[in-house]
Protein backbone atom coordinates (compact mmCIF):
# COMPACT_ATOMS: atom_id res chain seq x y z
CA UNK A 1 0.00 0.00 0.00
CA UNK A 2 1.22 3.44 -0.86
CA UNK A 3 1.98 5.61 2.12
CA UNK A 4 2.26 9.35 2.66
CA UNK A 5 5.35 10.53 4.54
CA UNK A 6 6.69 13.96 5.45
CA UNK A 7 9.98 14.36 3.56
CA UNK A 8 12.04 17.31 2.42
CA UNK A 9 12.05 18.78 -1.05
CA UNK A 10 15.67 17.58 -1.39
CA UNK A 11 14.63 14.03 -0.42
CA UNK A 12 11.72 14.18 -2.85
CA UNK A 13 14.05 15.02 -5.74
CA UNK A 14 16.41 12.26 -4.66
CA UNK A 15 13.55 9.76 -4.42
CA UNK A 16 12.29 10.64 -7.91
CA UNK A 17 15.78 10.12 -9.35
CA UNK A 18 16.27 6.85 -7.49
CA UNK A 19 12.89 5.37 -8.44
CA UNK A 20 13.19 6.31 -12.10
CA UNK A 21 16.81 5.16 -12.40
CA UNK A 22 15.72 1.79 -11.03
CA UNK A 23 12.93 1.67 -13.58
CA UNK A 24 14.87 2.88 -16.64
CA UNK A 25 18.50 1.76 -16.95
CA UNK A 26 19.11 4.29 -19.73
CA UNK A 27 18.85 7.30 -17.41
CA UNK A 28 22.19 9.11 -17.03
CA UNK A 29 23.06 12.10 -14.87
CA UNK A 30 25.71 14.61 -15.90
CA UNK A 31 26.83 17.53 -13.80
CA UNK A 32 29.59 19.33 -11.98
CA UNK A 33 30.63 18.19 -8.48
CA UNK A 34 27.72 15.76 -8.27
CA UNK A 35 29.57 12.93 -6.51
CA UNK A 36 31.07 14.23 -3.25
CA UNK A 37 28.15 14.45 -0.83
CA UNK A 38 25.65 14.04 -3.66
CA UNK A 39 26.39 17.47 -5.12
CA UNK A 40 26.35 21.07 -3.99
CA UNK A 41 22.72 20.78 -2.83
CA UNK A 42 23.00 17.10 -1.99
CA UNK A 43 20.19 15.80 -4.18
CA UNK A 44 22.23 12.88 -5.56
CA UNK A 45 22.96 11.29 -2.18
CA UNK A 46 23.42 7.51 -2.42
CA UNK A 47 22.76 7.34 -6.16
CA UNK A 48 26.34 6.72 -7.27
CA UNK A 49 26.52 3.76 -4.88
CA UNK A 50 23.30 2.24 -6.23
CA UNK A 51 23.91 3.10 -9.90
CA UNK A 52 27.68 2.98 -10.48
CA UNK A 53 28.80 4.57 -13.75
CA UNK A 54 25.52 6.38 -14.39
CA UNK A 55 26.41 9.62 -12.62
CA UNK A 56 29.04 11.34 -14.73
CA UNK A 57 30.89 14.12 -12.98
CA UNK A 58 31.85 16.61 -15.66
CA UNK A 59 34.47 19.29 -16.05
CA UNK A 60 33.30 22.90 -15.63
CA UNK A 61 31.81 23.08 -19.10
CA UNK A 62 28.06 23.72 -19.18
CA UNK A 63 27.92 24.20 -22.96
CA UNK A 64 29.92 21.01 -23.39
CA UNK A 65 28.06 18.69 -21.06
CA UNK A 66 24.56 20.03 -21.76
CA UNK A 67 25.35 19.69 -25.48
CA UNK A 68 26.34 16.12 -24.72
CA UNK A 69 23.07 15.72 -22.86
CA UNK A 70 21.26 16.69 -26.05
CA UNK A 71 23.25 14.13 -28.05
CA UNK A 72 22.80 11.34 -25.51
CA UNK A 73 19.07 12.06 -25.33
CA UNK A 74 18.79 12.05 -29.13
CA UNK A 75 20.66 8.76 -29.28
CA UNK A 76 18.16 7.10 -26.96
CA UNK A 77 16.97 7.61 -23.44
CA UNK A 78 16.52 10.23 -20.75
CA UNK A 79 19.43 12.33 -19.57
CA UNK A 80 19.56 14.68 -16.61
CA UNK A 81 22.02 17.53 -16.68
CA UNK A 82 22.39 19.27 -13.37
CA UNK A 83 23.51 22.85 -13.80
CA UNK A 84 24.85 23.83 -10.39
CA UNK A 85 23.09 27.19 -10.32
CA UNK A 86 20.40 28.30 -12.77
CA UNK A 87 22.48 31.39 -13.47
CA UNK A 88 25.04 29.13 -15.18
CA UNK A 89 22.41 28.09 -17.72
CA UNK A 90 23.26 31.28 -19.57
CA UNK A 91 26.44 29.46 -20.60
CA UNK A 92 24.47 26.70 -22.34
CA UNK A 93 21.56 28.63 -23.85
CA UNK A 94 22.31 27.41 -27.39
CA UNK A 95 22.20 23.82 -26.25
CA UNK A 96 18.85 24.30 -24.49
CA UNK A 97 17.10 26.77 -26.78
CA UNK A 98 18.45 26.10 -30.28
CA UNK A 99 19.18 22.41 -29.92
CA UNK A 100 17.08 20.60 -27.29
CA UNK A 101 13.94 22.68 -27.85
CA UNK A 102 14.13 22.58 -31.65
CA UNK A 103 15.15 19.07 -32.66
CA UNK A 104 11.74 17.42 -32.60
CA UNK A 105 10.28 20.24 -34.67
CA UNK A 106 13.12 20.75 -37.13
CA UNK A 107 13.31 17.03 -37.83
CA UNK A 108 9.59 16.80 -38.50
CA UNK A 109 9.00 14.62 -35.45
CA UNK A 110 11.83 12.15 -36.09
CA UNK A 111 13.73 13.10 -32.96
CA UNK A 112 12.92 13.07 -29.27
CA UNK A 113 15.06 14.96 -26.77
CA UNK A 114 14.28 13.60 -23.29
CA UNK A 115 16.77 15.97 -21.67
CA UNK A 116 16.01 17.32 -18.22
CA UNK A 117 18.12 20.29 -17.23
CA UNK A 118 17.80 20.58 -13.45
CA UNK A 119 18.99 23.75 -11.80
CA UNK A 120 18.70 25.28 -8.36
CA UNK A 121 17.45 28.83 -8.71
CA UNK A 122 16.31 31.85 -6.76
CA UNK A 123 17.45 33.75 -3.73
CA UNK A 124 20.41 32.59 -1.70
CA UNK A 125 22.21 34.15 1.22
CA UNK A 126 25.13 36.43 0.48
CA UNK A 127 25.85 35.04 -2.97
CA UNK A 128 25.08 38.17 -4.98
CA UNK A 129 23.73 38.66 -8.46
CA UNK A 130 25.19 35.64 -10.32
CA UNK A 131 23.85 32.82 -8.11
CA UNK A 132 20.29 33.96 -7.42
CA UNK A 133 18.30 34.42 -10.60
CA UNK A 134 14.87 33.07 -11.50
CA UNK A 135 14.63 32.07 -15.15
CA UNK A 136 11.25 30.35 -15.43
CA UNK A 137 9.80 33.09 -17.63
CA UNK A 138 12.90 33.17 -19.83
CA UNK A 139 12.55 29.48 -20.67
CA UNK A 140 8.75 29.50 -20.70
CA UNK A 141 9.07 31.83 -23.69
CA UNK A 142 10.63 29.06 -25.80
CA UNK A 143 8.31 26.73 -27.75
CA UNK A 144 9.45 23.14 -27.44
CA UNK A 145 10.43 23.40 -23.77
CA UNK A 146 8.48 22.42 -20.69
CA UNK A 147 9.33 24.36 -17.55
CA UNK A 148 8.72 23.05 -14.04
CA UNK A 149 8.90 25.20 -10.89
CA UNK A 150 7.56 22.87 -8.23
CA UNK A 151 6.59 24.62 -5.03
CA UNK A 152 6.28 21.52 -2.82
CA UNK A 153 8.12 18.22 -2.29
CA UNK A 154 5.16 16.34 -3.79
CA UNK A 155 5.21 18.48 -6.92
CA UNK A 156 8.98 18.10 -7.24
CA UNK A 157 8.82 14.32 -7.06
CA UNK A 158 5.81 13.91 -9.30
CA UNK A 159 6.97 16.32 -11.99
CA UNK A 160 10.54 15.04 -12.10
CA UNK A 161 9.26 11.50 -12.52
CA UNK A 162 6.94 12.66 -15.31
CA UNK A 163 9.82 14.47 -16.99
CA UNK A 164 11.89 11.29 -16.90
CA UNK A 165 9.10 9.25 -18.46
CA UNK A 166 8.35 11.84 -21.12
CA UNK A 167 9.98 12.54 -24.46
CA UNK A 168 10.38 16.30 -24.21
CA UNK A 169 13.15 18.60 -23.03
CA UNK A 170 12.36 20.00 -19.60
CA UNK A 171 13.89 22.87 -17.70
CA UNK A 172 13.42 21.85 -14.07
CA UNK A 173 13.96 24.77 -11.71
CA UNK A 174 14.26 24.11 -8.00
CA UNK A 175 14.05 27.08 -5.66
CA UNK A 176 16.99 26.79 -3.30
CA UNK A 177 14.91 28.08 -0.43
CA UNK A 178 12.70 25.00 -0.68
CA UNK A 179 15.28 22.20 -0.38
CA UNK A 180 14.97 21.84 3.39
CA UNK A 181 11.20 22.29 3.43
CA UNK A 182 9.09 19.28 4.40
CA UNK A 183 5.81 18.15 2.96
CA UNK A 184 3.65 15.08 2.43
CA UNK A 185 4.89 12.84 -0.40
CA UNK A 186 3.61 9.46 -1.52
CA UNK A 187 6.02 6.54 -1.69
CA UNK A 188 4.07 5.11 -4.64
CA UNK A 189 6.64 4.84 -7.45
CA UNK A 190 3.87 4.98 -10.04
CA UNK A 191 2.40 8.27 -8.84
CA UNK A 192 3.31 11.03 -11.30
CA UNK A 193 2.34 14.68 -11.57
CA UNK A 194 1.05 15.90 -14.89
CA UNK A 195 2.89 18.73 -16.62
CA UNK A 196 0.78 21.83 -16.97
CA UNK A 197 -1.40 20.97 -13.98
CA UNK A 198 -1.37 23.42 -11.09
CA UNK A 199 -2.45 22.51 -7.59
CA UNK A 200 -4.81 24.16 -5.12
CA UNK A 201 -2.70 24.18 -1.96
CA UNK A 202 -5.37 25.92 0.12
CA UNK A 203 -8.99 26.30 -0.96
CA UNK A 204 -10.66 29.66 -0.33
CA UNK A 205 -13.55 31.87 -1.40
CA UNK A 206 -12.46 35.51 -1.35
CA UNK A 207 -9.22 35.92 -3.31
CA UNK A 208 -7.17 33.72 -5.65
CA UNK A 209 -3.46 33.89 -4.90
CA UNK A 210 -1.31 32.18 -7.54
CA UNK A 211 2.12 31.85 -5.94
CA UNK A 212 5.10 29.95 -7.30
CA UNK A 213 8.31 28.67 -5.72
CA UNK A 214 9.19 30.29 -2.41
CA UNK A 215 6.27 32.70 -2.80
CA UNK A 216 3.91 29.77 -2.39
CA UNK A 217 5.02 29.36 1.22
CA UNK A 218 5.01 33.07 1.97
CA UNK A 219 1.54 33.13 0.44
CA UNK A 220 0.31 30.22 2.58
CA UNK A 221 1.56 31.99 5.70
CA UNK A 222 -0.17 35.19 4.66
CA UNK A 223 -3.35 33.23 3.99
CA UNK A 224 -3.22 31.70 7.47
CA UNK A 225 -2.67 35.12 9.05
CA UNK A 226 -5.44 36.83 7.08
CA UNK A 227 -7.84 34.00 7.88
CA UNK A 228 -7.88 35.44 11.40
CA UNK A 229 -9.33 38.62 9.86
CA UNK A 230 -12.00 36.58 8.11
CA UNK A 231 -10.34 36.69 4.66
CA UNK A 232 -10.50 33.32 2.93
CA UNK A 233 -7.68 33.00 0.37
CA UNK A 234 -7.37 30.28 -2.25
CA UNK A 235 -3.67 29.55 -2.83
CA UNK A 236 -2.63 27.90 -6.08
CA UNK A 237 0.83 26.54 -6.93
CA UNK A 238 1.07 26.80 -10.74
CA UNK A 239 3.84 24.12 -10.56
CA UNK A 240 4.80 24.71 -14.22
CA UNK A 241 5.65 27.85 -16.13
CA UNK A 242 5.16 26.01 -19.43
CA UNK A 243 2.53 24.92 -19.99
CA UNK A 244 0.61 27.12 -17.53
CA UNK A 245 -2.58 25.76 -15.99
CA UNK A 246 -4.74 28.67 -17.10
CA UNK A 247 -7.95 26.67 -16.74
CA UNK A 248 -7.40 26.04 -13.03
CA UNK A 249 -6.63 29.72 -12.44
CA UNK A 250 -9.56 31.01 -14.50
CA UNK A 251 -11.97 28.66 -12.75
CA UNK A 252 -10.72 29.84 -9.37
CA UNK A 253 -10.99 33.53 -10.33
CA UNK A 254 -14.51 32.92 -11.56
CA UNK A 255 -15.42 31.91 -8.00
CA UNK A 256 -13.29 34.43 -6.04
CA UNK A 257 -13.47 37.34 -8.54
CA UNK A 258 -10.09 38.63 -7.32
CA UNK A 259 -6.52 37.68 -8.29
CA UNK A 260 -3.04 38.27 -6.91
CA UNK A 261 -0.05 36.60 -8.59
CA UNK A 262 3.26 36.29 -6.73
CA UNK A 263 6.63 35.28 -8.23
CA UNK A 264 10.19 35.50 -7.03
CA UNK A 265 11.41 36.43 -10.52
CA UNK A 266 11.71 39.99 -11.83
CA UNK A 267 8.28 41.53 -12.47
CA UNK A 268 8.65 42.60 -16.08
CA UNK A 269 7.67 39.81 -18.53
CA UNK A 270 7.35 37.35 -15.64
CA UNK A 271 5.15 34.30 -15.18
CA UNK A 272 2.98 36.57 -13.01
CA UNK A 273 2.63 38.91 -15.98
CA UNK A 274 1.59 36.10 -18.29
CA UNK A 275 -1.01 34.81 -15.83
CA UNK A 276 -2.34 38.32 -15.21
CA UNK A 277 -2.57 39.00 -18.95
CA UNK A 278 -4.41 35.75 -19.61
CA UNK A 279 -6.94 36.41 -16.83
CA UNK A 280 -7.42 39.94 -18.18
CA UNK A 281 -8.08 38.51 -21.65
CA UNK A 282 -10.18 35.51 -20.78
CA UNK A 283 -11.54 36.22 -17.31
CA UNK A 284 -12.09 39.96 -17.35
CA UNK A 285 -15.81 39.77 -16.63
CA UNK A 286 -15.16 37.55 -13.60
CA UNK A 287 -13.00 40.20 -11.97
CA UNK A 288 -14.26 42.62 -9.34
CA UNK A 289 -10.88 44.32 -8.96
CA UNK A 290 -7.76 44.88 -11.06
CA UNK A 291 -5.24 42.03 -10.94
CA UNK A 292 -2.19 42.67 -8.77
CA UNK A 293 1.27 41.23 -9.39
CA UNK A 294 3.88 40.81 -6.67
CA UNK A 295 7.39 40.04 -7.91
CA UNK A 296 11.01 41.06 -7.59
CA UNK A 297 11.91 44.62 -8.50
CA UNK A 298 13.98 45.17 -11.64
CA UNK A 299 17.40 45.05 -10.00
CA UNK A 300 20.21 42.51 -9.81
CA UNK A 301 20.22 40.72 -6.44
CA UNK A 302 22.51 42.72 -4.12
CA UNK A 303 25.05 41.23 -1.74
CA UNK A 304 24.73 42.96 1.63
CA UNK A 305 22.30 41.48 4.19
CA UNK A 306 20.94 45.00 4.50
CA UNK A 307 20.24 45.17 0.76
CA UNK A 308 19.04 41.61 0.00
CA UNK A 309 15.50 42.00 1.41
CA UNK A 310 14.78 44.98 -0.84
CA UNK A 311 15.30 42.80 -3.89
CA UNK A 312 12.71 40.19 -2.98
CA UNK A 313 8.94 40.27 -2.39
CA UNK A 314 8.11 39.86 1.28
CA UNK A 315 5.00 38.57 3.03
CA UNK A 316 3.94 42.16 3.70
CA UNK A 317 3.94 42.85 -0.06
CA UNK A 318 1.65 39.88 -0.69
CA UNK A 319 -0.65 40.89 2.19
CA UNK A 320 -0.80 44.47 0.90
CA UNK A 321 -1.73 43.29 -2.60
CA UNK A 322 -4.46 41.07 -1.20
CA UNK A 323 -5.91 43.94 0.85
CA UNK A 324 -5.78 46.10 -2.24
CA UNK A 325 -7.81 43.73 -4.42
CA UNK A 326 -10.31 43.38 -1.56
CA UNK A 327 -10.66 47.13 -1.02
Amino acid sequence: MAEMREITFREAVNEALREEMRRDPRILILGEDILPGGGVFGVHGGLDEEFPGRLLQTPIAEAGFVGMGVGAALAGGPVICEVMFADFMTVCMDEIINQAAKFRYMSGGQASVPLIVRAPCGMGRGVGAQHTQSFEALFAHIPGLKVAIPGTPAAAKGLLKSALRGDDPVVFLEYKGLYAMRGPVSDDPELLAEFGRGSVERPGRDVTLVASGTMLHKGLEVAAELAADGVDIEVIDPRCAAPIDHELILASVERTTRLVVADESVLECSLASEIAATVAERGFYSLDAPVRRVASPRMPKPFSPKLEPASLPQKADIAAAIREVLA
Binding site: A63, F65, V66, A72, L74
Partner: peptide
Protein backbone atom coordinates in the same frame (compact mmCIF):
# COMPACT_ATOMS: atom_id res chain seq x y z
CA UNK B 1 21.10 16.65 -38.28
CA UNK B 2 22.63 19.52 -40.12
CA UNK B 3 22.75 22.46 -37.78
CA UNK B 4 22.18 26.17 -38.18
CA UNK B 5 24.43 26.96 -35.22
CA UNK B 6 28.13 26.82 -36.00
CA UNK B 7 29.91 24.65 -33.43
CA UNK B 8 26.78 23.01 -32.02
CA UNK B 9 27.60 19.57 -33.38
CA UNK B 10 30.54 18.84 -31.07
CA UNK B 11 28.48 18.27 -27.95
CA UNK B 12 25.73 16.38 -29.74
CA UNK B 13 28.22 13.99 -31.35
CA UNK B 14 30.00 13.49 -28.04
CA UNK B 15 26.71 12.80 -26.25
CA UNK B 16 25.83 10.20 -28.87
CA UNK B 17 29.29 8.69 -28.33
CA UNK B 18 28.64 8.59 -24.58
CA UNK B 19 25.45 6.63 -25.29
Amino acid sequence: GANGIVGAGYGIAAGAALR
